[in-house]
Design a protein around this nucleic acid. Structure first.
Lengths: 205, 205
DNA sequence: GTGTTTCGAAACTATGGCGTATCGAAAAAC
DNA sequence: GTTTTTCGATACGCCATAGTTTCGAAACAC
């Protein structure tokens, strides 16, 4: 695809840039973000080493660390909010299944960490992450809850912000309270059980 | 060195160490942890500058950064889990009020950040934090939920781990979704509303 | 007073990442 | 073939920070 595009516009004479190297750089960046605690931790040199690439190859494409991070995180495209099914309950379960998968993945988790902890230090970066990764899911969940209220599947006086925190926060906190090494042991039907608990409530029947 | 005599007599000759400096160092450390994104971010020099203290004064007391962090976080005594009241609902609200207050405080928040993000890099430190700050609350909440099941205030088939994630995670996610500058505008009765939503459930009456 | 120790400040060395420059080799267009 | 550009590797100067040492002043025991 790259060769085609280059041929269409203007063919820069000389050796074309390696798409493999670019991919390796993005992958290495995402890996290292997942392993590091913050943005300050990761170094261009470590990324180059992990990607098996010279620093020159990185600096030829991105002028600084933040630009690279923006592109790397943009490559972490969210696996698409789930399509709507027949019932709000099933859609909530599908939503939480995707969220659960992401919360268990170090790469996706780091997006949350950056968005929550680096607001003051990297406002532009955080804003881009919010727009690209968080806002679509937030909008999808809001629409889903509104639909449930309209159809009567959810209580009429539902507090939407609280309900959103309830659904997302429960899954997040559950995952966080489990050691990463134990993530394999998380029950398959976790999303279903959470949704049913939330819908029915904690009080007696 | 000749610490033997000093230890025996417990009377070190010479100028005694300033307790004020020690306090200032701990305070500065806690402040800066709250402002930084990770442990790698904060520097001893910044701590010394913030505390109005020479670096010598720090290195004379702690041999490295982690030792200082352990002592600093140990000084962050948790404000005591709430005493038990008459109903499980009221105890849950009281529990969430304390949690809400902590979640809005930069210092307390950093404890969570470290505990969740630095497990691989500082296992000793994280383990100490877990034992000192997280485990007591976890135990208190577990006992509270068990009591609710026993008294019939909570459903008999309650899934305790999920319920704990529900209560704590909802508050946490709600706070996180609000800009720190807007924390003042969070409704006073937030804890009450969350508990009532969770007890009654999201489904229709 | 003397002696001992800590005080804050500053100078110092060492480390490590950043961003740039240079190198020979390789990959394409012509 | 020649030309042009990118490739990975390496070296360089620069700067921030860590951690140590030195210094004169200050605080206590005696």
């Amino acid at each position: 695809m790259t060769t085609t595009d280059e041929t269409q516009t203007a063919r820069p004479a000389g050796r074309p840039r390696s798409a493999r190297a670019e991919k390796a750089i993005i992958e290495a960046t995402l890996d290292l973000i997942g392993e590091s605690s913050g943005i300050a931790d990761l170094s261009i040199e470590a990324i180059a080493a992990r990607a098996g690439v010279g620093k020159t190859t990185i600096y030829r494409r991105w002028s600084n660390k933040e630009d690279l991070l923006v592109d790397a995180l943009a490559a972490l495209k969210s696996p698409l909010p789930p399509p709507r099914g027949v019932s709000v309950r099933e859609d909530l379960i599908a939503y939480l299944r995707v969220f659960q998968h992401d919360a268990c993945d170090a790469r996706s988790r780091c997006v949350m960490n950056i968005a929550m902890n680096e607001v003051e230090r990297h406002p532009r970066l955080v804003e881009r992450i919010r727009q690209a990764a968080i806002e679509p899911r937030r909008a999808a969940l809001t629409a889903l809850l509104r639909r449930g209220v309209a159809t009567g599947e959810l209580r009429a006086d539902l507090d939407i912000p609280i309900a959103m925190a309830t659904i997302t926060g429960t899954m997040m906190w559950y995952i966080r309270s489990v050691e990463p090494s134990e993530h394999e042991n998380i029950p398959e039907e976790l999303a279903e059980r959470i949704v049913d608990h939330l819908l029915a409530g904690l009080g007696p029947r």
